[in-house]
């Protein structure tokens, strides 16, 4: 795998940087050139706060090539406080303790090693927040 594939999206993956649509005002993650809500093309860069809650989760016991050393691991859909859903691995967590509605926050972690020279690829994962300050618990 070539390095440009990864540095191209570093800002998005390290810092959870998305966009706000200039036309409809909706938050967008991951960032894209055409707004998925109104199809206009103008967006402003918007770093997300990185806080959210677990919308759903699944613990993987049968990992694909490249991820087998981490299994079992839990992947989740995270409902960000700003609105969008993000797909991410959970980290620093007991797989048994994960539950829908659990408050989580974004951290940057190693995602995998790739290729013969062991290129280490980093990206966002989410870990539990101990003190629950997340809003809208009624949504869950």
């Amino acid at each position: 795998m070539n390095v440009p594939r990864y540095w191209r999206s570093e800002r998005t993956r390290y810092g959870l940087v998305g966009e706000i649509c200039r036309s409809c005002g909706k938050p967008i993650f991951p960032p894209r050139d055409v707004c998925p809500h109104c199809t206009d093309e103008g967006q402003d860069v918007h770093p997300f706060g990185g806080k959210g809650q677990v919308y759903s989760f699944s613990t993987v016991y049968d990992a694909p090539a490249g991820y087998t050393e981490y299994q079992p691991y839990t992947v989740a859909l995270i409902k960000l406080d700003e609105g969008p859903l993000v797909t991410a691995q959970l980290t620093d967590v007991d797989n048994e303790a994960v539950h829908i509605g659990m408050p989580v926050e974004m951290v940057t972690r190693k995602i995998k090693e790739e290729g013969e020279n062991g290129l280490i690829i980093y990206g966002y994962k989410f870990r539990p927040v101990l003190e629950s300050k997340s809003s809208r618990p009624d949504r869950f």
Binding site: S58, V60, D62, P64, V75, Q89, I111, G123
Partner: peptide, 10 residues
């Protein structure tokens, strides 16, 4: 993120 097709279904 290491999501497999079964995990997505999960």
């Amino acid at each position: 993120q290491g999501v497999t097709m079964p995990a997505l279904a999960g």
